[in-house]
């Protein structure tokens, strides 16, 4: 029993097989196709959205990387670019937009406000969107220059390049576990005091039930 089961547990969650010649070649082709036609979903709110628009316009020209097709519908998008501050009033909208995107999907948190709340450590602001949705790449800056955003997108491309189709854990989706706390909430609270602050987040969104994912489950079940 013991040893074999423990070994099994360390294998990828789905697929359950080591990479072979065929799968790596398929991975190569699929990842090449995926990474060169990323369709961003621009979730722009504030200053960063203007820099995102500047990235798409002539001088910086996102089209060079196959990303000029801004997908304003989350159903067709691959990368969520959350550009700008996110107040609590907008939090459920962001979460729902993310939930509506099809797999495979990635998320970029653009700018200080989206990544950590930035200067807005106040009553109305989400302190980092990673309390709401999982984030792949954080782009620092206030706002980041278009080059910064493009670099962030290229890091997503790099991430895709190393993905394996056999690794189902990458595509595993658990809406209620999205943005799950890394430490348990009592531990986080002990670190951050009563309110938490911009640098030490309480990653708690999984503690909150949104209305939407529940209904999805009802539909499936």
């Amino acid at each position: 029993m013991g040893i074999i089961d423990d070994n099994k547990r360390q294998l990828p969650v789905a697929g359950n097989s080591a990479p072979t010649f065929l799968t790596t070649k398929v991975d190569f082709v699929v990842n090449w196709a995926r990474r060169n036609s990323l369709w961003p979903m621009p979730f722009g709110t504030a200053c960063c959205a203007i820099e995102m628009m500047a990235s798409a316009a002539s001088n910086f020209d996102l089209a060079r990387f196959g990303m000029e097709r801004m997908s304003f519908s989350p159903r067709q998008a691959d990368v969520l670019i959350c550009a700008g501050r996110v107040p609590y009033k907008l939090a459920p909208v962001l979460r729902r937009t993310w939930d509506q995107m099809m797999q495979p999907k990635w998320c970029i948190s653009m700018g200080a406000c989206a990544s950590s709340g930035g200067v807005f450590d106040t009553y109305s602001m989400v302190q980092g969107i990673d309390t709401i949705v999982p984030v792949d790449v954080y782009v620092p800056g206030c706002p980041p220059r278009p080059e910064g955003l493009i670099y962030g997108l290229m890091m997503i491309q790099e991430k895709i390049r190393n993905e394996a189709l056999a690794d189902g854990s990458l595509r595993k989706e658990d809406p209620e576990g999205a943005g799950k706390p890394e430490a348990n909430s009592s531990e986080v609270r002990a670190l951050t005091g009563v309110f938490g602050n911009s640098t030490q987040q309480e990653k708690v969104s999984s503690l909150a039930q949104t209305a939407r994912p529940g209904r999805f489950k009802d539909l499936l079940g």
């Binding site: 709110t45 504030a46 501050r85 107040p87 009033k89 907008l90 807005f120 106040t122 602001m125």
Partner: peptide, 11 residues
């Protein structure tokens, strides 16, 4: 409105 209320005045 209010989806971008960042509480500038309080800050």
């Amino acid at each position: 409105i209010g989806y971008l209320h960042s509480s500038f005045e309080k800050l």
